[in-house]
Design a protein around this nucleic acid. Sequence first.
DNA 1: AAATTCCTCAACCGCATCCCC
DNA 2: CGGGGATGCGGTTGAGGAATT
Length: 261
Amino acid sequence: MVEQEISRKGPWTEQEDYKLAYFVGLFGDRRWDFIAKVSGLSRSGKSCRLRWVNYLHPDLKRGKMTPLEESLVMDLHSKWGNRWSRIARKLPGRTDNEIKNYWRTHMRKKRAQEKKHAATTTTPSISSPDQSSSCQSSLFSNNNHAVDSRASNKETGEEENYQVEEIEQSYSMDDIWRDIAMSEEDDINILQQPVYDGTCDENCNNFCSPVMPSALSSSWDYSNLDPLWVMDEDESKILFPPIGDQCFSFYDQQGNTFLTR
DNA sequence: AAATTCCTCAACCGCATCCCC
DNA sequence: CGGGGATGCGGTTGAGGAATT
């Protein structure tokens, strides 16, 4: 009966980012379908999660990989293969997507170099087959214990020695969060916001996300959302005025984050 | 200066796994 | 225990900017 909204695709706008950040601040970084619905974003929950994890998360680092990080990626990839998310867990502030992209770029360069080298030396290279994943074999030691994801799923708590020492806070989204928290305080009241219990959601690293203990329980059926929770267009305009000349922006030229309005 | 190629990275897709009922 | 929805993961694509011709 409910006309299924067509999910928007493509690049996110600043306003969408802002909205998403706001609602994640409100509800925590779980229940993505719920957040997608309640925020009025015409995005799938999946898309919201991806955007959050890869771009908006407060702990994300931006900018080039440091040499230390690079060698860590090499090292871990030689151990674990393409287990990007696992590798990412060892690199604070880096996402699996970022590492994946870095690796691809890196491998492409490496292969180009090898080709060049092979051409100049005319020595036949053994490691030519260019299976995307095979490249590691020529690069690293042979200890690519192709970790089977199914076999090793319990590494959750395991904290290894790998630590990127300098977690330089080149930027943080805390400012945005704080800004949101302050500037929207009144608006939150309008929404009859959920009880914020004052504790940090452990999944939400920096900013203490308001959590909704009861509402977020799985039994809460948000298919029939109380209109109170769903943003209609007017509310949306009030809370998130259209991006204009006095809009907010998230990143400066260096990729550092700030929020202005 | 214009055209073309290359590179980067955000976003999508499909499948696997988890979790709850 | 099985089914179904939600979430996570890895592979892939494509837009847009940078570099090169």
